[in-house]
Simulated scan of single mutants.
Amino acid sequence: MAKILVVDDEKLLVKGMKFNLENEGYEVECAYDGAAAVELARTRAFDLLILDVMMPEVDGLEACMRIREFSNVPIIMLTAKSEDADKLMGFECGADDYLTKPF
C-alpha cells in the first residue's frame, strides 16, 4: 500500500484529503508545518509527499529543498498561488509537480 504524507496548515483541508486518499486505498500521515514535514520525511518512508507552499515555521518551498538533500521521493506542491513564476520556483526547489487550490 502506498504511503502519502499530506502537509498543510489548513487542518480541515488535510482532514478532507486524508479521508479521500484513504478511501482510495492509500495510507496517509499528516503534518501541519514544513518543519514537521522535513522530520517525518527524514524518519519515515513515504511514496509521495503533498506539501502546501504557504505554511508557518518552514514554508513548503524551504521544506522541499531540505527534503531534497536526503530524498528523491516524489513531491507535489499544493498552493493557492497560480502564477507561472510561483510554479517555476516550486520546480526549482525540487518539486515534481504543482497543484493549485481550489482543486
Results as ranks from 00 to 15, higher is better:
D86M: 08
G90E: 02
K11H: 09
T79F: 04
E69F: 00
F70N: 05
D96F: 05
A37D: 10
V73R: 00
E39F: 12
A37S: 07
T43A: 13
E39L: 14
F103R: 11
E39M: 15
E57A: 13
R44C: 10
L40N: 05
M17R: 12
A36S: 14
K101Q: 11
L61S: 02
D84W: 04
Y26C: 06
E57Y: 10
G94M: 09
C64N: 14
D9K: 07
A95S: 11
L88D: 05
E57F: 12
N20T: 13
R68S: 15
M1H: 04
Y26P: 08
A36W: 06
A80E: 01
L49N: 10
D9S: 08
G60I: 02
M77I: 11
I75Y: 03
F19Q: 08
L51W: 06
K18C: 06
I50L: 11
S71D: 08
N72S: 03
N72G: 00
D8T: 10
F103G: 12
L99C: 14
T43Y: 11
L78M: 10
I50Q: 01
T100A: 07
G16K: 13
F19E: 09
F19S: 06
K18L: 06
D97T: 14
R68Q: 14
A31K: 01
L51Q: 03
M89I: 14
C64F: 14
V7D: 05
G90W: 01
A95N: 03
D47L: 12
E22N: 09
L51C: 09
N72W: 00
L88H: 09
D8G: 03
L21G: 02
E57T: 04
E39V: 06
L5A: 02
I67D: 13
K81I: 05
L61I: 15
T43K: 15
I76K: 08
L12P: 05
N72C: 00
D52E: 08
E39Q: 15
